[in-house]
Amino acid sequence: MAKTVKQKKKLAHSQKIAFMSFERRRNFEGGLFAIPWLFGFICFVCIPLVLSVSVSFYEPVLTDLYSFNKPVGFDNYVDVIQDPEYGEVVFSSFGTSLAKVPIIVAFALFVAVLLKQEFPGRTVFRVIFFIPVILAGVIMTYLMADGVGTLSVFSNIVATSEYGSFLSGSLMSSIGTTMWASSVEILIFLAALQSVPAILYEVVELDGASAWESFWHVTLPYISPFVILNCIYALVDSFVDSQNPVMKILNELTQEGTKYGMASALSWIYMLMTLAVILIFVLLTRRWLR
């Protein structure tokens, strides 16, 4: 009799353990799903990143990049910081990027809200606003090199039109490039807007809210994580854009072939600054990020 009680207790105990380990096993199994991604990430992003840190402390030569024969300490960093040109370029490109982000995100949200409405020709407009992303890469660089999106083209248009006097060329050109930069954000917002349950709008409509009120009290709170996502995306996008002057300097340094150390140092300084900006941003907007 005593034995069976003991056995029962043991059974209950083992069941308890089994349950715990069930939860754990589930988490472990779930974690397994992330392995393919993690593998690629570690191989092709993390390791090159770590190696580039060590490169920034050496003076590598092209023929033997990882011999690490000539340690130079912080010399590369000192060189980058002391160069007056780099500092100026980095700070000015930071300023431009930071100023662009709110405009891009606000414009994207506005357009996405409009594009969500039912109206004739909606698909055509969606395609039009997405064209810059479709053209991304080779073709966009080719167009940029040709002068589309720069002052010359827009001022040319403006000069030939009657209203040229009150629309200055540089204003037009910045409107144009901002719009081209916001396509991805428009797409993300459009997809996010679809995730707002229609029933919420029904409820506030029954309560007598106007479209304006329902935007501020239903739509915006619901998609706030996506607003933050888009802000980060827009920030990063403008930081690593190939048209960004810092990126151009980096390309020059690596293509000259001998200055890998300096290029690594500059890109790490740049990346840490970017990281700091985004960290501050995330900390500030934490309460909206569910």
């Binding site: 992003v45 390791i47 190696l51 980060i232 920030l235 990126m247 690596t254 890998y260 890109s267 985004i278």
Partner: peptide
């Protein structure tokens, strides 16, 4: 990784 500056890590990659 989203803000990964690819220029400098091109050679290690």
């Amino acid at each position: 990784a989203l803000m990964f500056v690819s220029g400098a890590a091109a050679v290690p990659s």
